[in-house]
């Protein structure tokens, strides 16, 4: 058992047993941890100091003050616990993000009589504060996505220092839903259709597309072939526009990830493919994807690109850096 690993108080195994992963949880004594905060500890220290001084100087008023502070401390314990117990939390599935973006795990807090601030954080990263009241609150825990792949939803730490900051009350909740992180898109040239293999960094100019039916103009995006730019429009001062051709092209673009690619090279390649897929699905261009032995047939639907992105994200997930 690794205690205090990564700043976490409890081992994951123990936590999973005590607070099983579930989408909705109503906090009870099983799930709540409560300890005096650092401030609470120094407060106790002050109380002890006051007690010693009061006894040594035989000063009853100081003693009374000391007992009063003890009373406040005691009550703080109950209030802090009471504030947390009965809180219903619903963790919702997080939308997939790209590496480097912030994962947002939506949280629904149903509070019956919870007051004061609630802090939410994952792995001690960016904390989100919510001021609870007598209602339903929609909020989110945030975390920076650093690795691609599909992982378990990390534990969300929710904590509160209500009412006087003397106690630190917290719980670590997690849902069963997976967390999907796509590789970070990296800008690269868009390959042309019918290119059998795309090697990293390789650019090939597309064959002329005059067979296709001219469809519309839209703003130029970097990476698109230069010969698609509507030079006439540009000369008229309407900005850089790209001629778009209707998408039912018979040609499809094949994207390939060779099986032998590993390490940094693999990561870079996956990132580039992510970018390409994003651009292609925006243009509704059909493409196919070959990931080692896995093959995804050409399509241009939104669903297809999602499947491909997910495949890229989880490809050799554990080999990644």
């Amino acid at each position: 058992m690794k205690i205090f690993k990564n700043g976490r108080f409890f081992s994951n195994h123990w936590l999973n047993k005590r607070i099983p992963r579930q989408d909705e949880i109503t906090l009870s004594h099983r799930h709540i941890f409560i300890l005096p905060s650092r401030f609470g500890a120094s407060y106790v220290g002050l109380c002890i100091l006051l007690f010693v001084m009061a006894t040594n100087f035989q000063n009853n008023l100081m003693l009374l003050l000391c007992y009063f502070l003890v009373g406040i401390f005691l009550l703080s314990l109950f209030r802090c616990y009471q504030n947390f117990v009965g809180l219903t939390l619903r963790i919702q599935s997080a939308s997939p993000v790209f590496v480097g973006e912030t994962v947002t795990i939506p949280l629904l807090i149903k509070a019956e009589s919870t007051l004061g601030q609630i802090k939410m954080s994952i792995n001690n990263q960016t904390a989100v504060f919510v001021n609870a009241g007598n209602s339903n609150i929609t909020t989110a825990a945030k975390m920076l996505a650093t690795y691609r792949g599909q992982t378990q939803c990390p534990r969300i730490k929710i904590e509160s220092f209500y009412p006087l900051g003397l106690f630190h009350c917290w719980s670590m909740i997690a849902s069963d839903q997976p967390l999907l992180v796509y590789p970070a898109p990296v800008k690269c040239p868009i390959p042309a259709a019918d290119v059998t293999t795309l090697k990293q960094g390789e650019t090939q100019s597309a064959p002329t597309q005059d067979k296709e039916e001219y469809y519309q103009l839209r703003p130029h995006q970097t990476g698109e072939p230069l010969h698609h730019i509507a030079w006439k429009q540009m000369a008229m001062g309407r900005g850089t526009l790209t001629k778009q051709f209707s998408g039912y092209s018979s040609q499809n673009i094949r994207l390939i990830v060779p099986n032998e690619l590993t390490g940094l090279a693999l990561e870079k390649h996956l990132s580039e493919l992510t970018f390409i897929i994003l651009i292609l699905s925006q243009q509704q261009q059909p493409f196919s994807l070959q990931l080692g032995d896995k093959f995804f047939d050409a399509d241009n639907t939104e669903w297809h690109s999602k499947v491909c992105l997910k495949a890229l994200a989880t490809w050799k997930q554990n080999d990644g850096i």
Binding site: R90, Q92, S95, P96, P106, L108, T138, W303, K306
Partner: peptide, 13 residues
């Protein structure tokens, strides 16, 4: 990026 319908998401919440 939303595959589940928004309205369903809304109802679930």
């Amino acid at each position: 990026q939303q595959t589940t319908p928004y309205s369903q998401l809304l109802l679930e919440r």
